[in-house]
């Protein structure tokens, strides 16, 4: 049986519910795409049914033949495609096909990061305890996707809704992230 990186933290994260609904969404299919050719980028987007983000520090999402798919901007020629679990091999093959002979790469990095979804009005405030990026809705509207440091660990932060934040954290740092999050939420919990 495969155990997700935060399986042991499920109860402790659920206990933060008065402040934040924290849920791990493990085993998402994740593919790192390196390509700079605009035609290849358009072809890959058409294949997935989701246009690749053209602006820095944003992500796009949509529904296509692989269900709900998100494409995250990681760098000027680097993207991360995320989709439901179990699709990584199929998507990798399809993206390779769309890439054709153009210079670029598609690499399965599904095991690299786990996904944590934070839901709650105080999510931005809690993350601000350890993250220097301006998370005010005016500076980080829905659709923002930044790579930054959260309490010294590297994360990819997606603003997926007004009160919903999605954090991609490396699997080996996931428990550290969970411990930090539990600590940061403490002051918002009601005094017993």
């Amino acid at each position: 049986m495969t155990v997700s990186p935060l399986a042991a933290w499920r109860d402790r994260l659920a206990a933060l519910a008065p402040v934040l609904d924290v849920a791990e969404v493990p085993f998402r299919s994740q593919l790192t795409v390196r390509v700079s050719d605009p035609d290849a980028i358009a072809a890959m987007g058409a294949t997935l049914g989701v246009l690749f983000p053209s602006a820095a520090c944003t992500f796009t999402s949509g529904t296509g033949r692989f269900g709900d798919v998100e494409v995250l901007w990681l760098g000027p020629d680097e993207f991360l495609v995320t989709a439901s679990p179990g699709l990584r091999v199929t998507i990798e093959e399809v993206l390779r096909g769309a890439l054709g002979t153009v210079r670029g790469s598609v690499v399965d990095t599904s095991a690299q990061r786990t996904t944590v979804v934070l839901q709650g009005a105080q999510g931005r405030e809690v993350l601000a305890h350890g993250c220097s990026v301006d998370l005010h809705p005016a500076a980080a509207p829905v659709g923002t996707c930044v790579q930054t440091l959260l309490a010294r660990t590297g994360i990819v932060l997606q603003v997926t809704g007004e009160d919903t934040l999605t954090v991609l954290v490396r699997s080996s740092f996931a428990e550290y992230f969970a411990a930090w999050l539990a600590d940061a939420c403490t002051e918002y919990l009601a005094v017993p």
Partner: peptide, 17 residues
Amino acid sequence: MQLIPCPWCGPREEAEF
């Protein structure tokens, strides 16, 4: 901490660089 303006990502903390 000093902020360094990355030409791609905008101003970020020096520790990221």
